[in-house]
Write a protein that binds this DNA or RNA. Structure first.
Length: 863
RNA sequence: GCGAGAGUGGCGGAACUGGUAGACGCACUGGACUUAGGAUCCAGCUCUGGGAACAGAGUGGGAGUUCAAAUCUCCCCUCUCGCACCA
């Protein structure tokens, strides 16, 4: 142990030691309880950012803690390596996505190693490697066989200028991000996974995930969006056709006065055919279908529609209802058709007023009147049925069931449920992804690639095209192939690749046996390790990634590959890392190092103008409020960085970055270092105190109690709540107490006690600041890693207090306090309280009504 | 609009099932050691009045339950996040 704490030296020393001794390597160990701790793997974008640092620090603390508790801990790391940024970077630098990706992986791996995370690096995987994605292709074939993967036409964002498909985030207010061209909707044949088959299951199991944050559960439930109602068929006038609608308000059928179809609804053009409306309808449909979907999400998106020229008949009221096509009717939801009840649905109400359509009240509020003519908004509540024939007079809630039953009897419809969740479209018209293993033959149609031909390798020598268009269709040696069924030589491969969410839906299983080359994973390894006991990541993945993973796991279960259906037992979503923004009128947002001074004197280094401190926001490159982890590692080291990430806020909350806070963390480590150094010569050869509290008195006894209280506090804070911030402050308190111990007066007992205290501090801090703790541990004379030591346990008898502080209230207000022996009974406490001068003063001779005594805590005298 | 979460000193945050509000840290102030200190150690630090003892107020605002409320109930305000024409 050096005189001075030098984080650079300490950290590289221990990182080498860990590497050399293979300390983080794990194998299935049937004699130990397993614990699978997983953090969401990163996209290899180039550098680790503070969000990663926080996420992985939290995970590492839990992993190391569990390991010291005796668990066999799986703690892996890898790379979510397919995706668009690699393509964009490759185009910009005229290089290749693979090269860019693997370079980034190298940089980021070394950054993670510098942070001292306890990953078993032998299990590292990159999803862009054929050894990984071949199994994804394999499962795709299995899913295709079972009809779980299918092809259908679907819309994509299309830029005519770039001749390419755009992801939603590449569409900026309806325009292409790259060239500014108007984005259009184009219909393409695409592959889908039938996630909707599991909609009910995914929803009902939300209740069986008690280890997940409520927030995420709610988001998942809303996303699945189950609603129960009825499907009702409306016959089209002068036709044999019927229009099916889905409604949750079958009680209002008698109030349905018109019909709205989605513009893409297959019947729209047919209904308009031969009517004077034909031209208008075609123009409308054409215009709306060109519109970008993101535009439709805008708040004031104007509701509009056109009459198709045809009518349908309300099966219950017999009313002749005009059929419209309207831009707010969504083809993806329900049946793509809406029965419009303007009196009881706000949207329908507005539409009816706009186009002068009939409004009929069928549900009357219990204690109010309702007139169609004078309504200013739709009444969506419950009430008494009116204008509804045989159902008049009954409660609308009851009518829901009765009308559904009636419709069923008459054959007009039936009860049903509808989901917001749609099937998972996995086709991406992109290069940097896993090829979908399918072949199109002129004679045999859609043909799966034979299993023996897997993997279908992504060609590595493709040149990326400006604009982002996939080079695969033009690569003849890839795209052109032989039909595996008829042997025809003019078959073509599917050139779309898979959504990268597919890779991230099973990487946690792959970690269990990352080198397995005979299957997706080794069954025994997965049986041992899975499910993940604790998953940690950002809330931004609360819906898609987690839902897809839950779905994919169910698919694996259907194939008998796994035994469980939920992959993640506990989930922690950590908060964002935030920092104040700083900007100047000349240069806009400033990087932290581009401004100097504090408060009102802060100025922009570039122009000398005043630099204004803005809101605290999530760290982002665009706002320039970022801290580079490299700079922190350089200046303070990994341990301080980790310590601050944990100390500044509990993990689920947002963390506000503070340079001074980091300093504080650094100061604390130095404080511990000096303390240990001061005592080291005395305690190095000593044994830690292992006696009972009865042997001690005075400050020794207090220290002994403090040590055990701290062990208890840190253990429960980590174990029960992941509140590392309070765990750290408990250790700080212990250290403060130790600073009060006089080192001049020595005794054998005291030295043993200080030895125990220093050991405890090292052990309790070791998951948090592992390099620092190793150094301390070594200085104490231990020869093996502190990670191999057991987590400390506390003595119950050390926590017993001899006396307690009793606070005395008079009428609920704190008036006095005193200490009393723990074994004092209520009467003694009462006597003490009532003989207290201050208490008597506040009682002021008023009669005592009541005395409340809370054992060992409080007395409240009510007068 | 719907849903979820949050609001505590100058700041980040503590306070487990109602029972000493403000642990711990930052900032600030004073002292010690020092040629010097942005190092370190010690002390103070919610607000108001007071030299102090002490008293009063105080957990976004308002009501309520209770001997006792940051904590429970109702209403309101503000902020953050998610969903948002879902029929």
């Amino acid at each position: 142990m050096d005189e001075r704490y030098d984080p650079g030296a300490v950290e590289s020393k221990w990182q080498h030691f860990w590497e050399k001794t293979n300390l983080f390597k794990v194998k299935e160990d049937p004699h130990k309880k397993k614990y699978y701790l997983l953090e969401m793997f990163p996209y290899p974008s180039g550098n680790i950012h503070m969000g990663h640092v926080r996420n992985y620090t939290i995970g590492d603390v839990v992993a190391r803690y569990k390991r010291m508790q005796g668990y066999s801990v799986l703690h892996p790391m890898g790379w979510d390596a397919f995706g668009m940024p690699a393509e964009n970077a490759a185009i910009a630098n005229n290089s290749h996505p693979a090269q860019w990706t693997y370079q980034n992986i190298d940089t980021m791996r070394s950054q993670l190693k510098q942070l001292g995370f306890s990953y078993d690096w032998d299990r590292e995987l990159a999803t862009c490697s054929p050894e990984y994605y071949r199994w994804e292709q394999w499962l795709f074939l299995k899913m295709y066989e079972k009809g779980m993967a299918y092809r259908k036409e679907s819309f994509v964002n299309w830029c005519e200028h770039c001749q390419t498909v755009l992801a939603n985030e590449q569409v900026e207010s309806g325009l292409c991000w790259r060239c500014g061209e108007q984005v259009r909707q184009k219909k393409l044949q695409q592959w889908f996974f039938r996630i909707t088959d599991f909609a009910d299951d995914l929803l009902s199991y939300c209740e069986k995930l008690p280890g997940w944050p409520d927030k995420v559960i709610t988001m998942q439930k809303n996303w699945i969006g189950k609603s129960s109602g009825a499907e009702i068929r409306f016959p089209v006038e002068n036709s044999n056709e019927q229009i099916a609608v889905f409604t949750t308000r079958q009680d209002t059928v008698f109030g349905a006065t018109f019909m709205c179809l989605a513009p893409e609804h297959p019947m729209v053009l047919e209904l308009a055919k031969g009517t004077p409306r034909q031209g208008d309808v075609a123009a409308f449909v054409n215009r709306i279908s060109m519109q970008d979907r993101s535009l439709k999400a805008v708040e004031d998106y104007e509701k509009e529609g056109v009459f198709t020229g045809s009518y349908c008949i309300n099966p219950l009221s017999g009313m002749r209802m005009p059929i419209y096509t309207a831009n707010f009717a969504l083809m993806e939801y329900g049946t793509g058709a809406v029965m419009s009840v303007p009196a009881h649905d706000q949207r329908d109400f507005e539409f009816a007023r706009k186009y002068g359509l009939d409004i009929i009240v069928v549900v009357k509020p219990y204690h109010d009147d309702l007139e169609a003519g004078t309504m200013t908004e739709a009444y969506t509540g419950e009430g008494i049925m009116v204008n509804s024939g045989r159902f008049n007079g009954i409660d609308s809630v009851k009518a829901l069931d009765e009308i559904a039953a009636y419709l069923e009897r008459k054959g007009f419809g039936e009860k049903t449920t509808s989901f917001r969740l749609r099937d998972w479209g996995i086709s991406r018209q992109r290069y940097w992804g896993a090829p979908i293993p399918m072949i199109y033959c002129h004679r045999c149609g859609v043909v799966p690639v034979p299993e023996a031909d897997l993997p279908i390798l992504l060609p590595e020598d493709a040149n990326l095209l400006e604009g982002g268009k996939s080079p695969l269709p033009a690569l003849e040696y890839f795209a052109k192939t032989v039909c595996p069924v008829c042997g025809g030589s003019d078959a073509r491969r599917e050139t779309d690749t898979m959504d990268t969410f597919v890779e991230s839906s099973w990487y946690f299983e792959r970690y269990c046996s990352p080198a397995c080359n005979t299957a997706m994973f080794d069954q025994r390894a997965v049986d041992y390790w899975m499910p993940v006991d604790q998953y940690i990541g950002g809330v931004e993945h609360a819906i898609l990634h987690l839902l897809y993973s839950r779905y994919y796991t169910r698919v694996l279960k259907e194939f008998g590959l796994v035994k469980y259906r939920e992959p993640f037992t506990r989930l922690l979503t950590q908060g964002m890392v935030c920092k104040e923004t700083v900007s100047c009128s000349e240069h806009g947002f400033l990087l932290p190092e581009e401004a100097e001074g504090t408060g009102a004197d802060r100025i922009c280094k570039k122009c000398g103008r005043e630099a204004v401190v803005g809101r605290v926001e999530k760290m982002s490159k665009s706002k320039k409020n970022v801290i580079d982890p490299n700079v922190l590692l350089e200046k303070y080291g990994a341990d301080t960085t980790r310590l601050f990430c944990l100390f500044a806020a509990p993990p689920e909350r947002d963390l506000e970055w503070s340079e001074q806070g980091v300093e504080g963390g650094y100061r604390f480590l130095n404080r511990v270092w000096r303390l240990a150094l001061n005592w080291m010569d005395l305690i190095r050869e000593a044994r830690p105190f292992n006696g009972s509290p009865d042997q001690l008195s005075g400050e020794s006894r207090d220290l002994f109690k403090k040590i055990h209280e701290t062990i208890k506090k840190v253990t429960t804070d980590i174990e029960d709540r992941y509140h590392f911030n309070t765990a750290i402050s408990a250790v700080m308190e212990l250290v403060n107490t130790m600073y009060g111990i006089e080192s001049a007066e020595q005794s054998a007992l005291k030295i043993e006690l200080v030895r125990l205290a220093v050991e405890s501090v090292a052990l309790l801090l070791s998951p948090i600041v592992p390099h620092f703790a190793e150094e301390l541990w070594e200085a104490l004379g231990f020869e093996s890693s502190i990670l191999l030591a057991s987590w400390p346990t506390y003595r119950k008898d050390a926590l017993v207090k001899d006396e307690h502080l009793i606070v005395v209230q008079v009428n609920g207000k704190l008036r006095s306090r005193f200490h009393i022996d723990s074994d004092a009974d209520d009467d003694a406490v009462k006597k003490m309280a009532l003989s207290d001068e201050k208490v008597l003063k506040f009682i002021d001779d008023r009669p005592i009504k009541k005395i409340i005594i809370v054992k060992r805590k409080l007395v409240n005298v009510v007068v």
